[in-house]
Amino acid sequence: MVAGETSGDLLASRLLSGLRPQLPEADFHGIGGARMAEYGFRSDWPMEKLSVRGLFEVLAHYREIKGIQNALRDRLLEEKPAAFIGVDAPDFNFGLEAQLKQAGIPTMHFISPSIWAWRGGRIKKIARAVSHMLVVFPFEEEIYRRAGIPVSYVGYPLAEVIPMEPDVLAARAELQLPANARVVAILPGSRMSELKYNSVAFIEAARVLMQQDASIRFVVPMAGAKQQAYFSELLTNAGLGDVPLQVVSGKSHTVIAAADAVLVASGTATLEVALFKKPMVIGYKMMRASWEILRHMGYQPWVGLPNILAREFLVPELLQDAATPEALAKALSGQLNDEPHRERLHQRFTEMHHLLLRDTAKESADAVLRLIGHKAAA
C-alpha cells in the first residue's frame, strides 16, 4: 500500500480496519503514516517524502521521489504481493500500478483523482494501471463503468467518523475555549508547500477580522511538529508573530467541531468541514507558474468538494490573486454573521453527510478480498 499524505493515511486506515480482522497474518507494507501503523502497517519510507504538491514543487523533488518509486517497484516485483493498493497520490501511484499490473500483480486504487473536475483524459491511463477502483462519491461509479474499469462505491470514510451532530461544547472544553466565544478555525493545509503559499494570507485575514471584532478566537491545527515550526517561521518573517492564535498540534477535527466558521485550503479538508456542518471560506494559493498552467485545465466552475457535490457555490472560493487578506476576511465575516445562510448550509451539509454514509471499512475490505480471491469470514 502507498499513501502519500495525512488524508491518505486516514483513508487507508479505514480500509485496514476492515481488512486486518479478515487477514490477521498478512504483511501490509509500503508507504504510509501513523494511523495505518495502528493496524500493523510497516512503512518502508517516511510518508512525508511524497507530501509535495504543485507542478514545479514536485519537479524540485523529482529525483528523490522517482528513486523511491523505482526502489519500491523493484521490491514488489520480486516479492509478488497478493495485491497493491494505491491510496490517492495519483502521480506516484498510477505509474507504479501500471508496471505492477503488467507484471500480473492485481492493483487497486482508493480514491479517484478528480477526473470530473479537470481534464478527463487520464481515464485511459487509469485503465492501464488499475485492476479495480474504489470511489467515494456515488456519481463516480458511472464514469468508471463507462470506461470498462471495475469499480466499487464504498462511501466517504470520514462520513462514518464524523458525527451527524458534532458536540461543539465538548470540543471547546477540550481546547479550553469559552463556550460562548466566536471561534474561527484556520486550516492552511498539511503540506509544506500549502503552508508556504497560504499561511500568510490566511493569518493576515485573521488580523483584519480581529480589528473588526477583537473577541473572535482563532485556532490553527498543525499536522505535525515540522509543519508547526515552519508555520511559525513564516508568520515571524511576515511580521505576523504578534497575531494572537491558538496553534494546536493535531486535533484538526476537534478544532473544526469547535468553530463557528472555517477558513480552509482547497482539498479533502473542505469536505471534512462540510461533514462537521460548518460555514467556510475556501482559499488557495500556489506557485505562480503552477497556477498559470492549472487554471486553464478545469472545465467546471468549482474546485471545493462541497461545491462540486452540490453543483453550486454553496460556500465562497477565493483562489490565487483573489485570495487577498481583505477578500478572505470579508467572506469569512459573511459566513459568521449571516444566520439564514448558516442554517441553509447546515441543512445542505446534513443531506450531503447522509449521501456519503456507508460502511466504508467493510465495503472496501470486501472489494480487496474479492480482488485477491479470498473469501470473507462470516
Rank of each mutant, 00 (worst) to 15 (best):
63 R>V: 13
155 G>F: 01
106 P>K: 05
183 V>L: 05
75 R>H: 07
340 P>A: 03
272 E>A: 00
209 L>I: 01
265 A>P: 04
262 V>C: 07
293 I>M: 13
29 H>N: 15
6 T>V: 14
196 K>I: 08
331 A>K: 01
163 P>T: 08
52 V>Y: 10
216 I>K: 06
345 L>N: 07
181 A>M: 11
375 K>H: 12
80 K>L: 01
240 L>V: 07
314 L>S: 09
195 L>H: 08
231 F>G: 09
20 R>Y: 08
102 Q>P: 05
326 E>A: 06
266 S>H: 08
88 D>E: 11
242 D>C: 06
64 E>C: 00
333 S>N: 13
146 R>K: 14
202 F>C: 06
37 A>P: 00
126 I>P: 13
271 L>H: 00
237 N>S: 13
79 E>L: 15
121 G>L: 09
172 R>I: 00
152 S>Y: 06
340 P>D: 03
293 I>H: 09
157 P>L: 02
112 S>P: 00
13 S>G: 12
206 A>I: 01
315 V>L: 06
7 S>N: 06
288 R>P: 13
86 G>D: 11
57 E>P: 02
166 P>W: 00
90 P>T: 05
267 G>A: 08
275 L>G: 04
210 M>G: 14
358 R>A: 11
241 G>P: 01
35 R>S: 04
204 E>K: 12
296 H>Y: 12
246 Q>S: 14
232 S>P: 01
300 Q>F: 12
176 Q>W: 04
274 A>H: 07
364 S>E: 06
73 R>Y: 11
92 F>E: 03
144 Y>H: 15
220 V>F: 09
169 L>F: 11
72 L>P: 00
51 S>E: 14
275 L>P: 09
271 L>N: 02
17 S>Q: 12
363 E>P: 01
310 A>T: 10
237 N>M: 10
264 V>P: 02
316 P>N: 07
315 V>R: 02
104 G>I: 00
38 E>H: 10
343 E>F: 05
71 A>I: 00
250 G>W: 10
157 P>T: 02
280 M>N: 01
364 S>F: 02
104 G>K: 14
309 L>N: 11
35 R>V: 06
16 L>D: 11
156 Y>N: 03
364 S>H: 06
364 S>G: 09
19 L>V: 14
299 Y>F: 15
172 R>K: 11
325 P>R: 04
181 A>H: 07
149 I>K: 14
295 R>G: 03
330 K>M: 02
183 V>A: 05
240 L>G: 05
329 A>G: 07
74 D>A: 13
150 P>S: 02
352 M>N: 01
81 P>I: 05
93 N>T: 15
192 M>A: 14
142 E>P: 08
56 F>D: 14
184 V>T: 12
55 L>C: 08
218 F>Q: 06
284 Y>Q: 03
225 A>S: 09
233 E>C: 05
377 A>I: 09
154 V>D: 14
357 L>T: 05
365 A>C: 04
216 I>G: 02
96 L>M: 14
256 I>F: 08
304 G>K: 04
317 E>C: 07
355 L>D: 13
238 A>Y: 04
56 F>K: 13
106 P>S: 08
119 R>A: 12
154 V>I: 15
251 K>V: 01
272 E>F: 00
55 L>W: 09
2 V>Q: 02
256 I>P: 10
226 K>Y: 10
